[in-house]
Simulated assay, not measured.
Amino acid sequence: MTDQTVSSALATRDTGPGAMVERYRDDLAMVMPSHVKPDTFVRLAVSVLRRDPRLAEAASNNPAALMGALLEAARLGLEPGTEQYYLTPRKMKGRLEIQGIRGYQGEIELIYRAGAVSSVIVEVVRKNDTFRYSPGRDERPHHEIDWDAADRGPLRLVYAYAVMKDGATSKVVVLNRAQVMQAKAMSQGSDSAYSPWQKHEEAMWMKTAAHRLTKWVPTSAEYMREQLRAQAEVAAERPSPTAPLPQPAGITETDDDAPIDAEFVDEEPSDWPPTAQPGAGARA
């Protein structure tokens, strides 16, 4: 479906953004992991569009950007319009359009989905907190909070680590304010009044640390490749540890050097919907 065709879907009030999302439920379902219920996904997307007039306006201005963001959320198996996956309006060439941004809960969900960790800890440290961590000496950070304090002070640090199912502790990621601000500067639209960096600053600090942690723990994409390896070995009735792994449709490699919010919708979105690929419905 081309941008022009998508735009024509909004020609009348009866085919507004919410109605369009409902109409393309099956196209979104094709790329969802198996644990995601298409009806629930669509209901969440429609609900957030109908709740926020600015989002509805942005979706009407560029329907292809809306569907591109929803496609990304569907492929990752994250809930749109929540702290798993934000839908936000952003200004492009003087008008509002939809931008999709993974939230910290989405990053954590992708870690849990790999099945290798028992818990993920992501916390911010404020000025009046007590925080100690010495790499090589301490297994985990020591963080004390005065819960009776009226004001813990401004954000100072953020940290993240995972406890693996065998009890081991992953690498501990600790970022200071300067490092978080550097990540923010690389995020397109972070200075916009609509950006989650402005409206949910603490959550975006946590998202930054959780995203960095994914470099050191198994992710859902890695888990999927291991599942494919196991399936191939069973099908062949013999182990084949050196056999190349197929890349499942709908899963892309993570570029650790990319901006923290590299998931934003491109300025010139591609045609919608995409051509269905074999295995697109596999669990990510």
Rank of each mutant, 00 (worst) to 15 (best):
D255L: 03
S8I: 08
A168S: 15
E123A: 12
R238K: 13
Q105G: 09
E79T: 05
G189T: 05
P273C: 04
A282Y: 10
R229E: 03
D138S: 00
D261N: 13
T15Q: 13
A29C: 07
L96Y: 10
E222Q: 14
F41M: 08
T12M: 09
D266I: 02
A149M: 04
A235M: 06
A258W: 03
S118N: 11
S34M: 10
I108V: 15
R137A: 12
A59R: 00
N128I: 01
Y133A: 01
W147L: 14
I101D: 06
D148R: 11
M1C: 12
L96R: 08
K171V: 12
D26T: 11
R177T: 12
A65S: 15
A56L: 03
S170E: 03
D266S: 14
L49K: 03
K207F: 11
A282I: 04
M206Y: 03
K199Q: 14
E233Y: 04
N61G: 11
P53Q: 11
L87E: 08
G94N: 05
V48R: 09
L28E: 05
A74Y: 03
R50S: 15
G153P: 05
A262D: 13
V158S: 04
A65M: 04
S270Q: 12
S60A: 15
I108Q: 09
A168F: 07
P154Q: 02
T5M: 13
A116P: 01
N176I: 02
E202Y: 04
D266C: 06
L70D: 08
K93W: 09
G77S: 03
G115A: 06
I260M: 13
G18H: 04
A221P: 04
I251V: 15
R238G: 05
A58T: 01
A249E: 04
Q99C: 08
V217F: 11
S240V: 07
M32A: 08
L28H: 06
P33D: 01
N128H: 15
S187Q: 05
L213G: 06
P246A: 09
G250H: 02
A56H: 07
D166H: 02
Q179K: 11
L87I: 06
R156W: 09
L245M: 10
P53D: 14
G106V: 06
A183M: 14
R229H: 00
R95M: 07
L78Q: 03
G16C: 12
E222V: 08
W216T: 10
F264H: 14
W197P: 01
M224H: 15
G281T: 02
